[in-house]
């Protein structure tokens, strides 16, 4: 392994030559060991040498292994601790909160901010809202689904729609109010409308163009060590839940 046969013979030959030059031959080993100095101090020196070798090779490597194992244990303990906490939290949630309640809240929140862009469902809901309010949709186009580093880091993404309709001023007001409480959250980014020059009565046709934004949160990626920060008694959740309770789903009749 590594040294070829020819190379190995060469090395041996060189070793023998060196030994010969130093006159340390196998035969003279005995005389070396019988040398008074070696007989007197050999055991001491070799003990010290062996101790040092043992310390360097054995104790040092064992010490390094211990340090590495301690670090590994510390990480494993942290993982265990976070997993224990998480399992405890989830078990407490399932005990405190009926499965039906969790399902119902998930459904309500998922309707407001789905886990996918669900553009067809969004278009249908806007169509239903316009139908309910009596506004005639001239065009409704999916503009873009914005997915950027910023949106990924904040945890939700946007879907933009261009909406054009014809209605009276009162219907437009009603349309906006209805959109504001629709079960799927729809925001108006910009609004532009124009009426006929003989208006002012509120019954004339109003041509409206709006850029609408809806949102979705991508499916969460489960990481075993990610802690649970959710609490059903958290003020943010209660607030959002109470608002969503007031929101209405719309479907095309």
């Amino acid at each position: 392994m590594g040294v070829p046969l020819g190379g190995g013979v060469g090395i041996l030959f060189r070793v023998f030559r060196v030994m010969a030059s130093l006159r340390v031959e196998v035969g003279s080993l005995r005389s070396f060991l019988n040398h008074p100095l070696v007989r007197s101090y050999g055991l001491f020196v070799s003990s010290i040498f062996l101790s040092l070798v043992l310390l360097w090779v054995g104790a040092r490597s064992a010490w390094m292994q211990i340090q590495a194992l301690k670090l590994e244990q510390s990480l494993a303990r942290q993982t265990l601790s976070s997993l224990t906490t998480k399992v405890g939290q989830l078990e407490a949630l399932t005990e405190d909160w009926a499965a039906e309640e969790l399902d119902s809240q998930s459904e309500s929140f998922d309707r407001a901010v789905p886990s996918e862009s669900s553009i067809p469902a969004l278009l249908t809901e806007i169509q239903a809202i316009a139908q309910k309010c009596g506004a005639g949709i001239s065009s409704l186009q999916f503009s873009e689904s914005v997915s950027s580093e910023e949106s990924t880091s904040r945890g939700w993404e946007e879907v933009r729609l261009n909406f054009t309709s014809t209605s009276s001023f009162a219907v437009l007001q009603s349309l906006l109010q209805t959109m504001e409480v629709a079960s799927r959250v729809i925001d108006v980014e910009t609004i532009q409308f124009s009426t006929g020059s003989d208006t002012g009565t509120g019954t004339a046709d109003v041509q409206t163009t709006m850029v609408l934004i809806s949102y979705y949160t991508p499916e969460p990626v489960l990481q075993p060590e990610t802690p649970i920060t959710f609490s059903p008694s958290g003020s943010d959740f209660i607030k959002a839940s109470m608002i969503l309770n007031r929101f209405t789903p719309y479907e095309v009749e």
């Binding site: 969790l102 901010v113 969460p220 489960l222 649970i228």
Partner: peptide, 14 residues
């Protein structure tokens, strides 16, 4: 966990 993680993200978004 999926439902809870979803509720966490959606609450934050809402």
């Amino acid at each position: 966990e999926i439902k809870v993680a979803g509720l966490t993200d959606k609450t934050k978004a809402l």
